[in-house]
């Protein structure tokens, strides 16, 4: 036997010391092997459960907006069994025919409306039964861009963008001005030129951009857009779409966009939710949508 063979044998013995014992005391060895197998199996099961729970928690923690089985009716049903989630950093575009309740979804997320049935959760916290004051606090996590921008007529651009900062922060006037300029710069507006203008002096596209800057002022984790490109020329539409994409990429903001503009939707969406017959008819990536054989979907997409 060579030295090398000796070393190999010693290594073998170190690696499987039990086997040595097994030869020495066969019955005891058999029992301990069963115990070890049971322990190993138990440990594997626990590890699997822990991993599974961690994955579930990770997914749940990632879920920034969650709508579960929403039913809402005024005189007649508007939404029936509507469910979808928006995870961190995702842009969900809600599309559908006019009057199908797309904007209602935004109002539910903002808790301006309360569903008759179902749950709306933000960051895992159910907001459906919050008091009015608590709902105001949850809304501070969100920025909203309205269809017509909804800038305050009586305030200048500066005052509009500074409004949420003055309301909810203790920033000094210098810090507020710096933040306002930063946000106006982010939406590609020349701060010096527009800061003292009234909303009535701005074009439609500029109003939308100031609306986005106001929504962003408080650095929200969620941005909601109601028809951000409606009524705009193709060039301005492209600019606004680019801004929404830029927001997602640079700031990782989770967004829900209600839109008619399917071309822009495909450019900005992580996932698309199609609202049809008061329900979510499709929820998936733009690629999945174009690949679908569903007749309604094909008809909705038309020549796209």
């Amino acid at each position: 036997m060579t030295d090398a063979d000796d070393r190999r044998k010693q290594q073998e013995e170190r690696r499987h010391p039990s086997e040595k014992d097994e030869t020495a005391m066969p019955r005891r060895a058999h029992d301990s092997s069963r115990v070890r197998a049971a322990i190993r199996s138990e440990l594997e099961e626990v590890a699997e459960q822990t991993e599974h729970r961690a994955t579930r928690e990770r997914v749940a923690a990632n879920r920034v907006i969650s709508l579960e089985s929403i039913y809402l009716a005024f005189d007649e049903p508007i939404l029936e069994n509507v469910s979808f989630d928006a995870c961190e950093g995702e842009t969900i575009v809600v599309v559908g025919e006019s009057g199908t309740g797309k904007s209602t979804i935004l109002k539910l997320i903002l808790r301006l409306l309360v569903p008759d049935q179902g749950r709306v959760s933000i960051d895992g916290e159910e907001i459906t039964h919050l008091t009015f004051d608590d709902a105001l606090k949850v809304r501070q996590k969100m920025g909203m861009v309205f269809q017509g921008a909804a800038l305050f007529d009586s305030m200048t651009v500066y005052e509009n963008v500074a409004y949420p900062l003055r309301e909810h922060t203790t920033l000094t006037e210098d810090e507020i001005e710096a933040r306002v300029r930063e946000k106006l710069d982010f939406v590609d507006l020349e701060a010096d030129r527009v800061i003292d203008q009234l909303p009535s002096e701005l074009s439609g596209g500029m109003k939308k951009r100031v609306g986005i800057a106001r929504g962003l002022a408080n650095n929200p984790e969620i941005m909601l857009y109601d028809e951000p490109t409606s009524g705009l020329d193709p060039l301005t539409t492209a600019t606004i779409t680019y801004l929404i994409i830029k927001l997602q990429r640079e700031l990782g903001v989770t967004s829900v966009v209600v839109s008619h503009d399917i071309r822009s939707a495909f450019r900005m969406a992580s996932k698309i939710a199609l609202l049809a017959n008061k329900r979510i008819g499709f929820f998936g990536s733009p690629e999945e949508m174009t690949g679908s054989d569903d007749p309604y979907l094909r008809e909705f997409l038309g020549g796209f």
Binding site: K107, L112, L136, R139, Q140, F146, G148, Y163
Partner: peptide, 16 residues
């Protein structure tokens, strides 16, 4: 302000 969604905007900006 109501019809131009400015009241909703106030609500969303966390103001009563």
């Amino acid at each position: 302000m109501r019809v131009t969604e400015q009241i909703d905007a106030l609500n969303t900006l966390g103001t009563d």
